[in-house]
Amino acid sequence: MTTSVTIPTGGELGATASAIPVARVRTRTRWSRRFRPRRVVLTVLAFAIAIAWVFPVYWMLNSSLLPNRTLQSFIPTFLPIGGSLDNYENVLDGGSFFSALGISLSVTLIAVFCCLLFAFLAAVAISRFRFKGRKAFVLAVLIVQMLPAEGLFIAQYKMVSSVGLLNSVIGVSIIYTAAVVPFTVWMLRGFVAGIPADLEEAAMVDGLSRTQAFMRITFPLLAPGLVASGVFAFLQAWNEFTVALVLLPAEQMHTLPLWLRGFIQASATRETDWGQVMAASTLVAVPVIVFFLIVQGRMTSGLVSGAVKG
């Protein structure tokens, strides 16, 4: 999947407020005093780029609040003055949103649960043990993580349909779990390895068995790692489009991304109600944005950790 990364697919993600790398603000005063005009230009440029970059997100919110009549005008309305939540009401009234939400939730929750469980066990194995075949497994995980959905979805379609799981939550969940497990294993491996085995050792000296030591000492310390990995897996599965498109052709089985795409598809044949489309997009985007901000920093460092180690 975008999993790839696929999920770095699309996909793509990670941590807390610390996310925004707290920059070194040690300005070289002498330097800045000498080149004052240059700094002003750069600051203005930074604000201009910030506005341009966030504009599509703003435009989504703005359009979602405006009535279709206003949007039909050839002169865009840049502020949602006189706006209302009518578009949201209309979108929610159809009921198709809640159906898609239900499908998305079931697929995602199953995938996240299985993924976390399987990946946790595997991460413990590769970071706490040295064994025959370990390297082969790590290599397999890293390679599978790179495989694009585009290169496998025909085969996955054939497999899932041959066992009668087309248009079923189970079929998609299996594929999602498999697609997200590799990155989750990799991410959790880092967390498990970050907890010193000495702690367990000490507990074992005090009389706990190895399993007890792991469950009572290491496991609680892993909670933040499990949350971060879980959120990551959630985002991957929640935003996934390609596999869902192939495995869930029936409209009543559409996940939220497919449901949202339906609005654009319909626009080919009839006039698009952009207010509603933008309200629908906002409904899909807001929970994702919130989750994303939670894990963002970890995402950056996770993907390039090999390189930035200072």
């Binding site: 975008t2 699309g10 996909g11 793509e12 996310a19 925004i20 920059a23 603000v25 300005t27 700094r39 750069l42 600051t43 930074a46 604000f47 780029i49 910030a50 506005i51 970059w53 966030v54 599509p56 997100v57 435009w59 989504m60 929640w238 935003n239 489009f241 939220l256 991304p257 949202l260 795409r261 609005f263 654009i264 489309v277 933008m278 629908a280 997009s281 906002t282 899909v284 985007a285 994702v288 944005i289 994303f292 901000l293 963002q296």
Partner: peptide, 27 residues
């Protein structure tokens, strides 16, 4: 740039990054 400008830029980039692909496409 200074702290304010940098944070503004970073928040704006973060919001764009966080947008789900399908929602970004419709916009």
């Amino acid at each position: 740039v200074g702290r304010t400008a940098r944070l503004t830029l970073q928040i704006s980039l973060l919001l764009a990054w966080a947008m789900p692909v399908v929602a970004a496409m419709t916009v």
